[in-house]
Every structure is written in structure tokens, then in C-alpha cells.
């Protein structure tokens, strides 16, 4: 565990907490893509199956349970408790366009052709593109509330920090995982446009609004 990895994990937890608090306090999930939240739940479910087979550390296990529980809670709040506020007309991204290619790619490019390994690979590929329905929703409505922008910034920062972690681990431990690195780069690149808008607008107190 190095500082980049830990900062990345903190950023990830922070993003999830921001989102849950926003939904809970405003009693609304307006502006949030339920499709992205479902994809994240699928990501955690398929990746953290190893919770039952491999023990790494108490920290890892606690975080895995936390991610599973909070993503489940987010999906519940959006599709059950505050269903009436869910913006499903704008959340029209077709997730099968992400699920199917990720599944096929995981079957072809993986470290080992076993159920656990293919599911892990699938979750890595899916995570890299899971934010697309959310970014699509923001582009369709043309704007995002500040709190949604903070959520996206924290969520995007998490994988960017992991990239630094992988550089560090390669240099110090000679450890690297090409699948994770490739997907992590894709994931971070998808946020670049948003990062630019966040830094130039939201941090200066303006609302995130896309040019018409």
C-alpha cells in the first residue's frame, strides 16, 4: 500500500459518500444516471466474488463490503425509494452496448481462462466505461449540479491516482498488471473533458454548463 493507492481509495469512498448524501439530503436523484449506478453495482459484484475465496487484508475486505453495500444502497434509493425523482427520460444510454463488448473482450483477453478470472477482467473493463451513461446524461441536459460535479471529480480522481500507484509499483515492486493499467488509462481519459470543465468552471464557483 502506497500513498497513491490509499489516496485513490479514499477518493473513491469519498465519491460514493457524496453521492449517497446528495440523494439522501435532497430526497432526489435528479441528474444522476441510474444506468451508471447499475453498472457500478455489476462491477463490484463480479470483482469482489473473491471476498469468499481470497483473503488479502482486513482493509481490503472491509472496503469490498463497503463498495458492495453502498452501490446496492444507491441503486435502491434511485429505483425504489426516490424513484419518482429519477430522470429516466434523459438517462437513455443503452447499457447493452457496454455490457456485451466488455463481456466478449473479457472472454478473449484475460490472464487466465477461469470463471473468477474472466469475471474479474470483465469488471475491470466494465468499470472503465461505466461512467459513460452519466456523462451522456450530463451532455443531454447540458448541465450538472455542483454536488454532482464534485462526485464525478472524486470518482475520476480515484483511477487517476491508481495510475500513479501502478507507476510506483512498477518501479518499486516490479509489479504490473497490463489489463488493469490499460483499462485504468481508458477510464481516466474518459474523464479528461470533464476534469477540464470542473477546473475551469466549478472551482471558480460557476455551475457546470456545457456550451450550447
Amino acid at each position: 500500500m502506497n500513498i497513491f493507492r490509499f489516496a485513490g481509495d479514499l477518493s473513491h469512498v469519498f465519491a460514493i459518500i457524496i453521492l449517497l448524501l446528495k440523494i439522501w439530503k435532497t430526497r432526489s436523484c435528479a441528474g444522476i444516471s441510474g444506468k451508471s449506478q447499475i453498472l457500478f453495482a455489476v462491477v463490484y459484484l463480479t470483482r469482489y466474488l473473491d471476498l469468499f475465496t481470497t483473503y488479502v487484508s482486513l482493509y481490503n475486505s472491509v472496503m469490498k463490503v463497503l463498495f458492495l453495500a453502498t452501490s446496492g444502497a444507491t441503486v435502491y434509493l434511485m429505483y425504489v425509494k426516490f424513484k419518482a425523482t429519477y430522470d429516466h427520460n434523459h438517462d437513455s444510454f443503452r447499457i447493452e452496448f457496454l455490457l456485451v463488448p466488455c463481456a466478449l473482450l473479457a472472454l478473449v483477453i484475460n490472464h487466465e481462462f477461469t470463471v473468477m478470472e474472466v469475471l474479474w477482467t470483465f469488471s475491470i473493463y466494465l468499470e472503465s466505461v461505466a461512467i459513460l451513461p452519466q456523462l451522456f446524461l450530463v451532455s443531454r441536459t447540458g448541465e450538472a449540479e455542483s454536488i454532482t460535479s464534485h462526485y464525478l471529480f472524486a470518482l475520476g480522481s480515484y483511477r487517476a491516482l491508481y495510475l500513479l500507484n501502478w507507476v510506483y509499483r512498477y518501479m518499486v515492486e516490479s509489479h504490473y498488471d497490463l489489463i488493469a493499467i490499460f483499462a485504468g488509462v481508458v477510464q481516466t481519459v474518459l474523464y479528461c473533458d470533464f476534469f477540464y470543465l470542473y477546473i475551469t468552471k466549478v472551482l471558480k464557483g460557476k455551475k457546470l454548463q456545457l456550451p450550447a
Binding site: H12, M63, H175, D177, A180
Partner: peptide
């Protein structure tokens, strides 16, 4: 590294 990389990350 590579095959059977340790999955100690989240």
C-alpha cells in the same frame, strides 16, 4: 506480474 497477478487492489 502478468499471469496470476496478485489482486490486492480494489
Amino acid at each position: 506480474p502478468g499471469v496470476n497477478a496478485k489482486k490486492d487492489e480494489l
